[in-house]
């Protein structure tokens, strides 16, 4: 069976509008998660932990940095698949 089979069931995620809807819900959840940070009493020993939404912002920045650095690393590290066989 291949994907172009017209009899194949259409999945909910096949519709880009649904994906957009899903992503919007996700954005809203993230916003709520940061917002409730005000109400959570914090106990960690490091001052930085007590900053507003520290974990959320750190996770976001860490991942963006990770991807951007990794993308640059490709320029140095990436080789053709048969590199070691030549």
């Amino acid at each position: 069976m291949s994907a172009s089979d017209p009899r194949e069931k259409r999945y909910w995620l096949d519709d880009p509008a649904n994906v957009t809807r899903l992503v919007r819900v996700f954005y809203a959840v993230c916003a709520v998660l940061i917002a409730i940070d005000v109400f959570v009493p914090k106990h960690g020993p490091f001052a930085i932990e007590h900053w507003f939404g520290f974990y959320g912002f750190y996770g976001f920045i860490a991942c963006v940095a990770l991807v951007l650095i990794a993308k640059q690393l490709r320029k140095i590290l990436m080789r053709p698949e048969d590199y070691y066989d030549r």
């Binding site: 992503v23 991942c63 993308k71 990436m78 080789r79 590199y83």
Partner: peptide, 25 residues
């Protein structure tokens, strides 16, 4: 969640590096 948010945004803006056939040193 915010890490996932980063992934989603990078993916939807096309900044995320595509999967490429390669080896990395």
């Amino acid at each position: 969640f915010l890490s996932a948010l980063a992934f989603t945004i990078l993916m939807r803006t096309g900044i995320y590096p595509p999967e490429l056939r390669s080896v990395n040193l």
